[in-house]
């Protein structure tokens, strides 16, 4: 398919179809549909926030609160004082920084190697990787493998098996391949070696794509729970998502003893949910274009 430079995404050219810029009846209908859908997405978050700040006595009288006359931040205080939540937050931060850096490193070098023109064994490796996209061994052999590697009940099980994500690796590979070949040739004439060409020329040029891939990894790590749930029974290495999961499914065992006058179970649950999504809410509007860029470039070139 057509190659598109990353600075000139087709998405940037808005309002293309048709020169008829009149705001017609159809636009009103479309506007209403989109508005309703957007409100359906916003409402749960709004409701959750209201519940988290509604004092228990008001909530008891009317659990279907849409608005609260009095506000309390006791639940957030409870969340901020909860050791399990902070512990989960710490583990998730290790994944978020350590895990993401580890994934970016291995995914980038693999993508770069596979983007270079011809080298011995390239097709073999490429096919070896593509096969894994369509066929896998399933859960049980994977489980036995992880167990025999001695990774159960360690934090490593949430990091090491994620080294390379095939989709993100292909994104990087396609981006490296789209950079002009002359860059490499002229650098070689100037006497640069392979390492210098990669580190000093290709890496700085691919920073936008690195940012995109890094963000995908970061979100994945922030949301990580599956491997932890499967392989770790140790409570001290639960991720934030796992802690939240336990709070929602078994509130009695996982919510600290609270003063029922000032904060109830629902307050605490909603505040905990909010605690896990606030970072995403804060950063997402500014980062959205990077995510979009990744998916668009990947699709157009892949």
């Amino acid at each position: 398919m057509a190659k598109v430079k990353i600075e000139k995404l087709p998405l940037a050219k808005k309002d293309k179809p048709g020169p008829s810029h009149k705001f017609g009846r159809m636009d009103v209908v479309l506007f209403i549909i989109l508005l309703v859908f957007a409100l359906l997405i916003i409402f749960p978050f709004y409701y959750l926030f209201i519940v988290s700040i509604t004092p228990p006595d008001i909530y008891m009288n009317n659990p279907a609160v849409i608005w609260t006359p009095r506000v309390t931040f006791e639940a957030y205080k409870g969340v901020f004082e909860d050791r399990n939540i902070w512990n989960g937050f710490g583990i998730t931060c290790i994944l978020l920084f350590g895990g993401t850096a580890y994934q970016i490193f291995f995914t980038t070098i693999t993508g770069y190697a596979l983007s270079r023109s011809k080298w011995f064994g390239k097709n073999f490796v490429m096919n070896m990787i593509l096969v894994t996209m369509f066929f896998g061994g399933g859960l049980i052999p994977y489980y036995i493998l992880i167990k025999s590697l001695g990774m159960t009940n360690t934090i490593w099980v949430m990091i090491i098996p994620g080294a390379i994500d095939t989709f993100n690796m292909l994104l990087m590979r396609n981006y490296f391949a789209s950079l002009p070949k002359e860059l490499e040739e002229s650098a070689r004439i100037d006497g640069a070696n392979d390492v210098q060409i990669f580190v000093k020329i290709f890496l700085p040029l691919s920073l936008p794509m690195l940012a995109t891939v890094g963000l995908f990894f970061a979100v994945g790590n922030w949301n990580s729970w599956y491997n932890g749930m499967l392989f770790n029974s140790d409570y001290s290495i639960r991720t934030l998502q796992q802690v939240l999961q336990d709070i929602i499914t078994e509130p009695s065992a996982n919510i600290p003893i609270l003063n029922p006058e000032r904060v109830n179970e629902e307050n605490f649950k909603t505040a905990a949910i909010f605690f896990t999504i606030i970072p995403m809410m804060m950063f997402y509007p500014f980062l959205q274009r990077y995510f979009v860029k990744g998916i668009v470039v990947g699709a157009i070139k892949g």
Binding site: G137, G138, L145, A163, I164
Partner: peptide, 17 residues
């Protein structure tokens, strides 16, 4: 590293079937 990674985490489970 990629060869090792895919061999260990994808091909050993495939062999495990």
């Amino acid at each position: 590293p990629a060869i090792i990674y895919y061999a260990v985490f994808c091909y050993i489970p495939m062999y495990g079937v």
